[in-house]
Design a protein around this nucleic acid. Sequence first.
RNA 1: GCCGGAAUGGCGGAAUUGGUAGACGCGCACGACUCAAAAUCGUGUUCCUUCGGGAGUGGGAGUUCGAUUCUCCCUUCCGGCACCA
Length: 797
Amino acid sequence: MKEYDHKSIEPKWQKKWEDSGMYVASDTSDAKKLYLLVEFPYPSGDGLHVGHVRPYTALDVVARKRRMQGENVLYPMGWDAFGLPTENYAIKTGIHPKDVTKQNTDNFRKQIKSIGISFDWSREINTTDPDYYKWTQWIFLQLYKDGLAYKDKMAINWCLSCKIGLANEEVVDGKCERCGGETEKREKEQWMLAITKYAERLDKDLDDVNYIERVVLGQRNWIGKSEGAEIEFKIKDSKEVMCVFTTRPDTLFGTTYMVVAPEHPFVAEMQKSIKNIDEVRAYLQQTSKKTDIERTAEGKEKSGVELQGIKAINPANNKEIPVFIADYVLAHYGTGAIMAVPAHDERDNEFARKYNLPIVEVVQRPPEKNEETVYTGEGILINSGKFNGVETQRARIAITKEVRGRSKTTFKLRDWVFSRQRYWGEPIPMIYCEKDGWVPVPETDLPIELPEVEKYEPTDDGESPLSTIDEWVNTVCPICGGPAKRETDTMPNWAGSSWYFLRYTDPKNAKAFASTESLKRWMPVDWYNGGMEHTTLHLLYSRFWHKFLFDKGLVPTSEPYIKRTSHGLILADGGEKMSKSKGNVINPNDVVEQVGADTLRVYEMFMGPFDQAIPWSTNSMVGARRFLERVWRAQELISETSLDENLERLLHQTIKKVTNDIENMKFNTAVSTLMVFMNGIEEVGAITKEAYLMLIQLLAPFAPHITEELWESCGQKGSVHETTWPRYDHHKIKETTVTIVVQVNGKVRGSFEAPRDEEKAQLLEVALTIEKVQAHIDGKKVAKTIHIPNKLINIVV
RNA sequence: GCCGGAAUGGCGGAAUUGGUAGACGCGCACGACUCAAAAUCGUGUUCCUUCGGGAGUGGGAGUUCGAUUCUCCCUUCCGGCACCA
């Protein structure tokens, strides 16, 4: 027998697979289709990370198993290659981002191939390829035509170090999501996408998809749907009305003051009536200087100023109430104004206490609730005129109706800031004409390609580097033919990834982003695995684009992904995140070199639950390697004798468990089950060839190279990956004898072997003969006995 | 603060329609092989113990013949959101 030498085996089979094209998904097969997707990586200069290997291997295991079960599997890969690190590298070195991208993708491709993932490389895509981003631009134009893309001057989050505008989703703790630098608010004209028009459907349709719970919750939370009512308050001695949004119209009688956001136009409109206008202006100035971080950083101490001379009328009881401005009310949410009910809202309560405002309870507090806390729950109304005694849920509708309010649903979700003042992104295909305003580039002119530039840095005034190239910027208006200028902003790097899964179905189509036929064949994605960090960004954006395309009749389903799962991070040995600066990064290249791709794969599947973060342990990895070596050596144990009865049962149990565990992503227990079977083979010391070949098949999805080699050396023809997945015989799984556990008062006192399905009376008889059992019931009366078939006898004394 | 998730040997983890806690792997100890070492193989490995047993799945109560699993309260850790009316 040869030694197990991964260095010769792995490249050998990788080449055979590539030459045979056996992982190319068929566009003509009648077999059941299965579209498996992992997030395509940003090809960074650091190369592949062991963290990439986990999800790629996991769905590769599923892909290989399902192919063996006869399905036509599409499992593609590509590159999400626009982005800042490449651009920053270009700024530093002067090398064109295109060249950097080429180097990086070549490296990534080579690395991924070295771990034997069965991607269909014939469908490889790259978001920076003009043939690809032509269609990203095309989709933008369709959004524009439908009024879903618009330009707006607005306060955006500005990253001081990237010199770039950021979407809200890209700001984390007031810091830039990408570089971690400080951000501030800045007024700037930006292209926006009206994702909020899809808020309701993005929320509701989560009911119909099979996403893991934490993804659904993350999206729901981000969309922030909230049902309530809009109610108008008259302003005393004025024609003005103030409209508020509330989720608790039932507490209207408890409204003792109102608050409007400092930015609310009401303040300017009413300035003549405001007696303390200087004080108000001082407050406005103070808050406008504050960033969101500062507003929240002050321990949430609420502040505000009363608008003296202004009174609002509570429509429920016609009482005059004061009006405040305070920065705890947000201008962009609801109507930018609230009715304050300090008895039943914690924020209002805090504010009312600080400014000595009346607090009127209108919902009866249940007796068990602490009187110190603000009661925000449901109950029976009090101090509410004719609504006294009504239950809060019903009162919401009744009071809203009484004061002519209207039901209203609001969302936290805000429109998507789509402009970036950067070079390395898709140019936004719009032209500005003095006469005609913003004009879309004609579709026949797409793609608008990125021009060559000398400097990649954004300009000091925050404009894109494209703005300095006059011959590119200056163009003619598609409508009037007069002089006009191109938009120099580019798209954010979420653009290309918002539809890439569609392109895989028909990657070379020059007439459409994908043909209807291809889309019908492959969509929707059956199973999409990716990181939790993309729950509110990529996943929401791509669902939005897909729903838009569905509305246009361009894709066959309203949801792009049927099932979404998520992998846990791989941490460094000590449990910290792997990072270059800490020097604790494990390079998959080194691992493949030293112990082989199969060992790496088996280890990553075995290390722990797939959805859980887990520390890397090079020590533990040797267990995976030892296991493969034992499988290798077990060739020697193949003998002509018939299969041991216990081993046969174990084999069928193994087939069942591995088959189920793969589908449930319990890869760790699938591998351990294979190990148990291997232990069984060694214990018996012999195995039939047939049973050994089944072990090879079950292991094949996890360790595709060594199993090919073993399959071949056992004299089998063709690839193990093209064989039929083993089936188990449920008759052969059942044990003929079972271990019966004997308990006395619930404590284990002994056990014995008995034939399967033995009667209780017989079992009890045997149980009572056990010495230890006798010792524990000695002199006591047996109250009752409990029998769980084929499991245990419990004697209660 | 709110919403999720988690807590099991020296370590990663396994086991739930409630039924032998610690599968599998790592590590460790001892033994075999070897001049020796590595590799490999074998045996053992939750803790305490007066060797009869006893305790034990973050802590405390409860339901049950029986609880890692179900209920209530609490602690700690991780992740997400954060003045959203």
